[in-house]
Design a protein around this nucleic acid. Structure first.
Lengths: 191, 191
DNA sequence: GGGCAAAGCTAATGTCATTAGCCAGTCGTG
DNA sequence: CACGACTGGCTAATGACATTAGCTTTGCCC
């Protein structure tokens, strides 16, 4: 019986394939083992179990999101940067729904997820920096970042879930949301 | 062995208890059966299986959301109505996270979910009506409704997932998001 | 009181995760 | 080159859960 030659990294890579092909909830040790051509328990030689594997996959996806945000921001500043980053997020979600879910989705309150939270914080910091370039009062900065994050995440989530029933163009709606939100954020109406 | 006296309705009620106490993902036939004091297969006399039960529970939760939206809107018109409905949504999510998830969360592409979709559409229509009272061009109505839905859903989702790490007041951020978004929607900057 | 439908049960099957313990391939060292 | 340890893979066993099949019993209605 020749060895399969697995490693932690290759198991995570196969897991990413599963996530891409079948979705985040379909990520199961059985699915990974099947792709690896290996019995399920063999995987425990390389990962600590399903929750640990999910955490590792989520980490990769978070980093990918961070990278795309950074790239999208590029040399842009302020509102155009925010828009580009929002679009980059949505693009990732549409190209790899499972990865987006992995990055955003399912790590609620994991105790051992400090590392993951730290990496996710880097993605948030990217958005935060761009939002900070908007004409928003300093003491509203956090509110504004939360607003943009919520808008993007909510839109993408609803879109992926098929929550937009009407045939009306969804790209347009997304741009509409982001531009009008940033407009609203930079308007200081009552006081 | 005296009968437990279950019915479809009582099974759904117990399922709601599970969702309230342990969350939407913890809704399992085993959990319901345990609360009913009954063996798991007995439940099949009252519901068609776990997916069907989830659908029924989701239906109840969607209707509850619709009811709260209607109540929150009350006699308000336009932006105040939108804000009140947004807050009502968030209140539901914070009081009963599991129910919110049930209402919004996990019915992606179920084929047999037409009834559920129809009921969810009623909730959307409530928001849509209020958004329609904003000063938004008619051909932007759908975009605006999507924007508000996305903002509310995204914020609530992130909040429930513990995505707002900073201690900064979250209520304030929410109001900030909704008011500035509606402000942005009613501003028609570059034609 | 008898009969019958519905409500429960047990048993069996299948999926998945996890743990324990075994065996063999591989590599480093003498 | 041979030996031995390490390590990667295996099978077997256990335990949660859903689902189906088929049996038993309760309770109501005549």
């Amino acid at each position: 019986m020749p060895r399969a030659g697995l490693s932690s990294a290759s198991v995570v890579a196969l897991a990413l394939d599963v996530v891409d092909d079948e979705g985040w909830e379909a990520l199961t040790l059985a699915a990974v083992a099947s792709r690896a051509g290996v019995a399920v328990p063999s995987l425990y030689k390389h990962v600590a179990g399903l929750p640990a594997l999910r955490r590792e996959v989520a980490g990769v996806c978070v980093d990918e999101l961070t990278g795309r945000l950074t790239a999208a921001r590029g040399t842009l500043v302020g509102a155009p940067a925010v828009l580009a980053m929002a679009q980059a997020t949505r693009d990732l979600a549409r190209e790899h729904p499972g990865r987006y879910q992995a990055a955003q989705g399912d790590w609620p309150l994991d105790p051992a997820a400090d590392d993951l939270r730290a990496r996710a914080a880097r993605a948030v910091e990217q958005m935060s920096a761009a939002v900070g370039e908007l004409d928003v009062p300093a003491d509203r900065r956090i509110d504004a970042v939360r607003a943009v994050r919520a808008a993007v995440h909510g839109f993408v989530t609803l879109e992926l879930a098929g929550g937009f029933g009407l045939p009306q163009d969804v790209d347009t709606s997304f741009d509409y949301l982001i531009t009008h939100l940033t407009t609203g954020l930079t308007a200081h109406p009552a006081a």
